[in-house]
Every structure is written in C-alpha cells, then in structure tokens.
Amino acid sequence: MIRRLTGMLLAVALAGCAANSGNDSGQAGMRSGEISEQALGGVGAEPGSIAYFQALTGDRVFFEVDESTLSAEAVSILDAQVEWLSVHRRYTATVEGHADERGTREYNLALGVRRAVSVRNYLVSQGIAADRIAIVTFGKERPVETCSNEFCWSVNRRAVTVLAEAAVS
C-alpha cells in the first residue's frame, strides 16, 4: 500500500515538475487568457501508458494472510483497472499472484493462483473480456520487499496486473 502511494506521489510530483518547467519557460510573455499546452514527458504523463496504469490507476491489490478475498480497497483499485482497460483496449493483461515468505513453496504457488484467479474473476465480472486476462503464480519467488516483518509480508501478498500490448490482429 505504502509502496503504491509512494509510486503515485512520485508520478504526480514528476508531472508537477514537468508542468512547472513548462510554465517557467513561457512565463515571460504570458497574458491573461493565454493558456499554454505542452506534452508531459516521463512517468504518468500519458494516460494510455503502462507507466500511468502502474502509478495512477494502481496495478496491484493486497491480501490478508492465506486469503484471496478482495478487500473494499482492492475492489476500488480493480474498478479503476476495469475503467482503464475498457478505454485502452489495445492492452492485454496477465494477473500475477504472489505470496509472502511465510508459507511453504507449493502452498504459496497455489495461493498465488487463487489470488490471481480472484482478481481475474472480478475483472471479467465487470466486463473485461476473459481472453484479455491471463494468470500466473509466482508463489513466494518474487518478493518486492525483502525484510522479514509484517510490513514487507503485507506488501508481498499481492496480485499485480501486468499489461502487454496485444498483437495487432
């Protein structure tokens, strides 16, 4: 959660910088009513980009220990994903299910499956075509945080929606 927020703030901050620098450069001759427009470079700038999806839509949801049920917060993030995916139809997604290190290898693989399926089922129930969403489990193989306490474990118990541009048909 904290990591996601950090990501969002970072993206917003970068967008802010870009906007400011744009303003700064044109400040001298600016008059009332004149509104400059400039494309933003960098993270989060382009609403249809993977970076935007990751940082501003939110690419991941988190789970309680051994759980795969979606929290209210997870549902709101997935609703945003649905909205985004509905607009940006050129993308397909793979939902990666992950677990924390406090489980055995095989169980965590199965738990990752369950979490990925839980997210996929929700996305599909909200109208995303089932053939756009694949699933994969990584069990405890790919933690994002490496400490051994509840903070790190809670961040690692996740399902991440990973985008790919669909092959042009």
Binding site: E106, L109, V113, R114, V117, R120
Partner: peptide, 9 residues
C-alpha cells in the same frame, strides 16, 4: 502433480 487448469489447484 498439482494442476491448475480449472483455476483451482
């Protein structure tokens, strides 16, 4: 072996 073809293991 464990299979997840149906989405369940």
């Amino acid at each position: 072996v464990s299979l997840t073809s149906s989405g369940n293991t």
